[in-house]
């Protein structure tokens, strides 16, 4: 039997959400002085690069972009075994930066915890902010997002999937029921 799927956001909806989040980031940080975007692999890194080009369109400034892979910082090696490790690329110093972490779906908050630990190993950012495309609730840690594309109430059994095309552009967001 095919699983029941609902489309939460289509391509245009994702686009609008990213534009709004880009404006919110600029408004909150009063421009992009010392701003940096770091996406969490995989998914968040593609969204971070979209945010970068959107900010570039608005302010005509290229903010530094990085990607972090959190596999080395996970707390569930025993439960899930050794996952393949992706590359972490932060080609600029983090000290004094206002870092916006970017992820596709915020769920338990454990990924964000790992990502923050990873960032701390690279330097001492002034602030770390969090931007996500979807916040689906069910936090297990005291973590919240600063910028949200869409809040989606979900059940734990459900799954939220962000679909990317071959050019790593987000196409749609689906809620998959078990």
């Amino acid at each position: 039997m095919a699983k029941a799927e609902t489309i939460i956001l289509d391509k245009a909806g994702i686009d609008r959400a990213i534009t709004r989040v880009a404006h919110e980031i600029l408004e909150y940080n009063k421009g992009c002085v010392d701003l940096a975007l770091i996406g969490i692999r995989t998914g968040g890194d593609h969204l971070a690069s979209l945010l970068q080009s959107r900010i570039n369109k608005i302010e005509e400034i290229e903010v530094p972009l990085g990607a972090v892979d959190i596999t080395m910082y996970r707390d569930d090696l025993a439960a899930r075994g050794s996952k393949p490790i992706g590359k972490t690329e932060i080609p600029f110093p983090l000290d004094g930066k206002h870092v916006v972490l970017v992820d596709d779906v915020l769920y338990t908050g454990r990924t964000i915890r790992s990502a923050m630990d990873a960032l701390m190993d690279f330097g001492r950012p002034s602030t770390i902010q969090l931007a996500v495309l979807i916040d689906r609730g069910h936090r297990e840690l005291p973590i919240r997002s600063d910028y949200v594309g869409r809040n989606v109430p979900t059940a734990r059994e459900e799954d939220v999937v962000v679909v990317f095309d071959e050019n790593q552009n987000p196409v749609e967001v689906k809620l998959v029921k078990p």
Binding site: D69, T71, M72, Y73, R74, L77, S82, P84, I85, G86, K87, T88, E89, D117, A118, D121, F122, G123
Partner: peptide
Amino acid sequence: KLILDTADAFKEVNSREIKKVPTL
């Protein structure tokens, strides 16, 4: 191949200022 790819990813840790990750 998996071992070599994983090693490629870990190589980056050795060039950091803080050369330590909490993995194990």
